[in-house]
Simulated assay, not measured.
Amino acid sequence: MADASSTLNAAALRGAVDLSSLRNRPAPAQPAAGGSAPAQPGAAGAAPQGALPLVFDVTDATFGEVLELSRQVPVVVDLWAEWCGPCKQLSPVLEKVVTELAGRLVLAKVDVDANPQLQQAFRAQSIPMVVALVAGQPVPLFTGAVPEEQVRQVFDQLLQLAAQNGVTGTVPVEGAPAEAPAEPPMPPLHAEAFAAIEAGDYPRAITAYEQALKENPRDEDAKAGLAQVSLLARVQGVDLQAARQAAADAPRDVDAQLVVADLDIAGGHVDDAFDRLLELFASLPSEERAPVRERLVELFGLVGAADPRVVRARGQLTSLLF
Rank of each mutant, 00 (worst) to 15 (best):
Ser5Leu: 02
Ala10Lys: 08
Ala10Phe: 04
Leu13Gly: 12
Gly15Gln: 04
Gly15Pro: 08
Leu19Lys: 00
Ser20Trp: 05
Ser21Phe: 02
Ser21Gly: 14
Arg25Ala: 15
Pro26Lys: 10
Pro26Met: 06
Ala27Thr: 12
Ala29Asp: 13
Ala33Arg: 14
Gly35His: 05
Pro41Asn: 10
Ala47Arg: 12
Leu52Gly: 11
Leu54His: 02
Leu54Glu: 02
Phe56Leu: 09
Phe56Ser: 08
Thr59Ala: 01
Asp60Thr: 09
Asp60Val: 04
Ala61Ser: 12
Ala61Gln: 12
Thr62Val: 06
Phe63Ser: 05
Leu67Ala: 07
Gln72Thr: 13
Gln72Met: 03
Pro74Asp: 08
Cys84Asp: 09
Gly85Tyr: 02
Ser91Met: 13
Ser91Phe: 11
Pro92Val: 11
Leu94Gln: 10
Leu94His: 06
Lys96Gln: 11
Val97Thr: 01
Val97Phe: 04
Val98Lys: 05
Leu101Glu: 01
Ala102Ser: 13
Ala102Lys: 02
Leu105Met: 06
Lys109Glu: 07
Asp111Pro: 07
Asp111Arg: 04
Asp111Trp: 09
Val112Leu: 00
Gln120Tyr: 00
Leu133Pro: 04
Val134Cys: 10
Ala135Asn: 11
Ala135Val: 08
Gly136Ile: 06
Pro138Phe: 07
Val139Ser: 00
Pro140Glu: 06
Pro140Ala: 10
Pro147Phe: 02
Gln150Arg: 15
Gln153Lys: 15
Val154Glu: 00
Leu158Gly: 02
Leu158Ala: 06
Ala163Leu: 00
Val171Thr: 11
Pro172Cys: 05
Gly175Cys: 04
Pro177Cys: 08
Ala182Ser: 12
Ala182Asp: 02
Met186Arg: 12
Pro187Asn: 05
Pro188Leu: 04
His190Ile: 00
His190Lys: 03
Glu192Gly: 01
Glu192Asn: 03
Ala193Glu: 03
Phe194Thr: 10
Ala196Glu: 06
Glu198Leu: 04
Glu198Asn: 08
Ala199Asp: 12
Glu210Gln: 15
Glu210Arg: 15
Gln211Asn: 10
Leu213Ser: 05
Leu213Ala: 09
Glu215Cys: 03
Pro217Arg: 07
Pro217Cys: 07
Arg218Glu: 15
Ala222Gly: 10
Gly225Val: 05
Leu226Ala: 08
Val229Glu: 02
Val229His: 00
Leu231Asp: 03
Leu231Thr: 09
Ala233Val: 00
Gln236Arg: 13
Gly237Asp: 07
Gly237Met: 11
Gln241Phe: 00
Arg244Lys: 15
Gln257Leu: 07
Val260Tyr: 07
Leu263Ser: 10
Leu263Cys: 11
Asp264Arg: 09
Leu278Gly: 07
Glu279Pro: 01
Pro285Trp: 02
Ala290Ser: 13
Val292Gln: 00
Arg293Asp: 06
Arg293Met: 11
Glu294Ile: 04
Glu294Cys: 04
Arg295Gly: 07
Arg295Thr: 13
Leu296Trp: 00
Val297Asn: 01
Glu298Ala: 14
Leu299Arg: 14
Leu302Val: 06
Val310Asn: 03
Arg312Phe: 00
Arg312Gly: 13
Arg312Gln: 14
Ala313Ser: 13
Arg314Asp: 10
Arg314Ile: 01
Phe322Val: 08
Phe322Trp: 07
